[in-house]
């Protein structure tokens, strides 16, 4: 569109020059102008139609790409589930391990009241959760895990986009999701389930350290809370 209007301006300028030079040729200029206007109208209309068509096509190609990707993913899943069966079933799933690692980065950012760091960690956690392969679990566990993951993805996503107080609100529910996830996946490292009775009628979180560092209030009430449970 910009190009068109720039061209227009140039054409206009050319015209006004010509106007001065050939005052006698007024008729010719007028007819030229009509032609120009018609051309512009046609061009604008054609380019708009073309644009709208292109948009439609883009969507189509996106869709096909999507289905191809899904296809690839499902193939990967098949391969992985085959290899997982051979693995030691006691070992914590590597995806679950990564989720916990990302969660801890997020928790530490909230303890430090670092909004941007927390947002970054939220986005990282979101992408890890999206890639979580649950195929090594029993059907019932899979159902539960999928539910937990779907919920956790939403909270992680919001943490990636929000202000500190919202991040903490979402972190509360996210923590519940992760605690429930660990109940299914188990953990290689010892985890401490800690609890702050003050934040939103009482809120829990997970930590690798026994010492309390409160992610809901940060430096305002850093050591407020207690260890509720040790998870091995």
């Amino acid at each position: 569109m910009q190009n068109i209007s720039i061209n227009l301006k140039q054409n206009e300028m050319n015209f006004s020059k010509k106007n001065h030079e050939h005052k006698n040729n007024n008729k010719k200029v007028v007819s030229k102008k009509v032609k120009l206007t018609t051309t512009i109208m046609v061009m604008a209309f054609v380019s708009l139609t073309a644009m709208s068509c292109k948009d439609g096509k883009k969507e189509e190609s996106k869709d096909t790409m999507h289905s191809e990707m899904n296809h690839d993913e499902s193939m990967d899943h098949d391969n992985m589930s085959a290899s997982n069966d051979k693995m030691d079933s006691n070992a914590q799933n590597s995806d679950a391990k990564q989720v916990l690692a990302d969660y801890m980065v997020l928790k530490d950012a909230l303890v430090a009241t670092e909004k941007d760091e927390a947002a970054k960690a939220g986005k990282k956690l979101e992408s890890t959760l999206k890639g979580f392969d649950v195929s090594s679990y029993t059907a019932e566990e899979q159902k539960e895990l999928k539910d937990i993951i779907a919920d956790a993805i939403e909270h992680a996503e919001h943490i990636g986009q929000s202000e500190m107080d919202h991040q903490r609100e979402h972190f509360k529910t996210l923590s519940k999701d992760i605690i429930d996830m660990v109940a299914i996946t188990g953990t290689d490292n010892t985890l401490y389930q800690q609890f702050c009775p003050m934040y939103d009628k009482g809120s829990a979180w997970l930590s690798m350290n026994e010492d309390i560092k409160n992610p809901y209030y940060g430096s305002k009430m850093l050591t407020c809370g207690k260890v509720q449970k040790e998870i091995n």
Binding site: M1, I4, S5, L8, K9, E12, F15, S16, T37, I40, M41, A44, F45, L48, T49, S52, D55, G56
Partner: peptide, 22 residues
Amino acid sequence: MRIVKLIALVLLVAFVGIQFVP
């Protein structure tokens, strides 16, 4: 003035045009 008119015209055409985008 003519430039303004032409720009207005193009905008009008564009406005009408986008009404056809589904």
